[in-house]
C-alpha cells in the first residue's frame, strides 16, 4: 500500500513500486487530466507539481515519492479554473487539440511560481513541452498575460 498526497487528499493505492507516478495518478487515483505522451520524459504531457516543482511523472517511479510530498495535478491547480494561467489560456484560446495542455499549463504555473515575471528568453528556455498542433506562440502570450495579471502560481 502506497500513501500519496494528491491535490490535498491522502490516497492509498496498490501498485508495483516501479510503476510510474503518471500511471498511478491516471489508473489508481483516477485523475486522467495528466496525459501520457512519450513515457521517457521527453514531451512533458505528464507534468505535475511535486512540492511545487514541475516534474515529468511518466519517468518517476511511485516508490520514489517521499511520504509527505505533495502532488498537484491539473485537476488540483485551482478549484474553479481561476489560476492565472488557466484564465489566460481561456482568454487567448491557447489550446488546439489540448492533449498537451495540462502539462503545458502545469509547467507554466510552476515557472511563474518561481519567477513571476519571466523574460521571453526565460520562457523559451524553461517551457520545453512538446505541442504538435503548434500552439507555442499562444503559450508564450498566455504566460506573459498570466504574469501581467500579477497573481502567480500556487500549487
Amino acid at each position: 500500500m502506497i500513501r500519496l498526497n494528491v491535490n490535498g487528499s491522502v490516497r492509498e493505492v496498490e501498485a508495483e513500486p516501479d510503476t510510474p507516478l503518471l500511471w498511478v495518478i491516471r489508473e489508481q487515483v483516477g485523475l486522467t487530466g495528466t496525459k501520457y505522451g512519450c513515457g521517457i520524459a521527453q514531451c512533458g504531457a505528464c507534468t505535475v507539481h511535486l512540492d511545487g516543482q514541475a516534474v515529468r511523472s511518466c519517468s518517476l517511479p511511485v516508490s520514489s515519492i517521499e511520504p509527505g510530498q505533495k502532488i498537484v495535478t491539473i485537476e488540483g491547480l485551482s478549484p474553479d479554473r481561476s489560476h492565472p494561467v488557466q484564465k489566460a489560456w481561456a482568454e487567448l484560446d491557447v489550446p488546439q487539440c489540448g492533449f498537451c495542455q495540462s502539462g503545458m499549463i502545469m509547467a507554466a504555473a510552476a515557472l511563474l511560481a518561481q519567477k513571476p515575471k519571466p523574460s521571453e528568453a526565460e520562457i523559451r528556455q524553461e517551457i520545453t513541452n512538446i505541442c504538435r498542433c503548434g500552439t507555442y506562440n499562444r503559450v508564450l502570450a498566455g504566460i506573459n498575460l498570466a504574469a501581467q495579471g500579477g497573481e502567480t502560481g500556487r500549487g
Binding site: L31, T32, G33, T34, K35, T73, I74, E75, L77, S78, R81, Q86, W89, A90, D93, V94, P95, G98, F99, Q101, S102, I105
Partner: peptide, 11 residues
C-alpha cells in the same frame, strides 16, 4: 477551450 484548461476534457 475551458475543458482543456482543467483536465476535464475526455480523450
Amino acid at each position: 477551450t475551458v475543458e482543456k484548461t482543467d483536465g476535464s476534457q475526455v480523450y
